[in-house]
């Protein structure tokens, strides 16, 4: 598969919440297998941007093409896209009434319509991948935060998506659990998955990202490979932001 085939094309995207403009003229192209890390101060539109990619938010203007499908008001398109785009949330959002295994199989069985036995073996495979095969029969509330987030990652992977979106996946975790989640994400990145991560974990970003994106006030201010981004960013506000979070 050619490495330079675009899989997500964001062109001149605008997003309004009422009168408030959350995104202004945002353009970004992500290629197959590329890892993009988005950072920026809170309220800069990072989450809004990736939530537009699987249309949890509807964009107000511009074009958004994911996996060759233009996102617009046609429901079929949206569901087709969502099947190919996995999403991991800050608050995990596991289904509390289902066991871990059921959390992992409900999508494949009800959406992909694959046989139950196959869905279960697939679920076990991905639980292995996130290193918690022994938790299959527990309920989410019985797991630690880090374990829950890894289950959430496995739940998305069970749909065998082509793209994974991470919306601040470690922000709700206790510090000692952050690394187990980042390790899983790093392994996923090494397997060649296309990823967009909104995160403030700069160590992870430096190790994994092909492209760093800095956003402020709903605009993309800087796009650069990490080697340049972390050493000599062009934009002074980006530099200020990095100084602030790398201080400690």
């Amino acid at each position: 598969m050619p490495e330079d085939t675009p899989i997500i094309e964001i062109r001149n995207l605008d997003k309004f919440f009422g009168a408030f403009q959350a995104l202004t003229d945002v353009s970004l192209t992500v290629h197959i297998g590329e890892k993009v890390v988005i950072c920026g101060p809170s309220g800069s539109g990072k989450s809004t941007l990736i939530r537009c990619v699987n249309r949890l938010e509807e964009h107000s203007g511009g074009h958004l093409i994911v996996d060759g499908i233009e996102l617009n008001d046609h429901t079929r398109n949206i569901r087709a896209v969502r099947m190919e785009v996995g999403m991991v949330f800050q608050q995990f959002n596991l289904f509390p009434h289902l066991t871990v295994l059921e959390n992992l199989t409900v999508g494949p069985i009800r959406v992909r319509k694959i046989p139950k036995a196959e869905a279960i073996s697939r679920a076990r495979k991905y639980l292995d991948r996130v290193h918690i095969p022994e938790q299959a029969d527990k309920y989410p509330a019985q797991l630690s935060g880090g374990q829950q987030q890894r289950v959430a990652i496995a739940r998305s992977l069970c749909m065998e998506p082509r793209i994974m979106l991470f919306d601040e996946p470690t922000s709700a975790l206790d510090p000692e659990m952050i690394n187990e989640v980042l390790d899983v994400m790093t392994e996923l990145a090494e397997s060649g998955m296309t990823m967009i991560c909104v995160t403030h974990e700069m160590g992870f970003a430096n190790k994994v990202a092909d492209k760093m994106v800095f956003m402020e006030d709903g605009k993309i201010v800087e796009i650069a490979p990490p080697s340049i981004f972390f050493t000599k960013p062009k934009n002074p506000r980006c530099q200020a932001f990095l100084d602030q979070i790398l201080e400690h």
């Binding site: 949890l56 087709a80 099947m83 785009v85 996995g86 959002n93 959430a152 739940r155 998305s156």
Partner: peptide, 9 residues
């Protein structure tokens, strides 16, 4: 949101 991002109707 989680249900929707799995592609559920």
């Amino acid at each position: 949101e989680a249900a929707r991002s799995l592609g559920m109707s």
